[in-house]
Amino acid sequence: MTRAQQTVSIGLLFASTQLYLALFLQLIPLPSIISEEIIPVLPLWALVSFGSYLLAKLGYGVLTFNDVPEAHAELMKEIDLAREDLRTKGVEVD
């Protein structure tokens, strides 16, 4: 991370904590339904969303994890070929 990125991230983190605190302490007037029901659970919501995102990414990754049986078949043929050739070159192969 460059210094510029570091400064920007620290700044953003600081600003968003300040904003959240102001909202949480009701320093910024909002309808009571928002300030009482939504603001307090916002951090938890963010955490759960992040977790779900990671889980979804994991699920997608495993689903799209490619199987390559043809690579195995090809390798087996090449190993046999290599064995024969190596024997003629005087290398011990089992």
């Binding site: 994991l58 994890f65 490619n66």
Partner: peptide, 26 residues
């Protein structure tokens, strides 16, 4: 990389192994 491309991938891994590998990578 084992995680992309038409020729990218693994052979001989079960679901658990893929899950652990992908999880570790994420």
């Amino acid at each position: 990389t084992r995680y992309s491309g038409k020729h990218g991938g693994v052979y001989g891994w079960d679901l658990k192994r893929k899950l652990v590998s992908k999880g570790a990578n994420i």
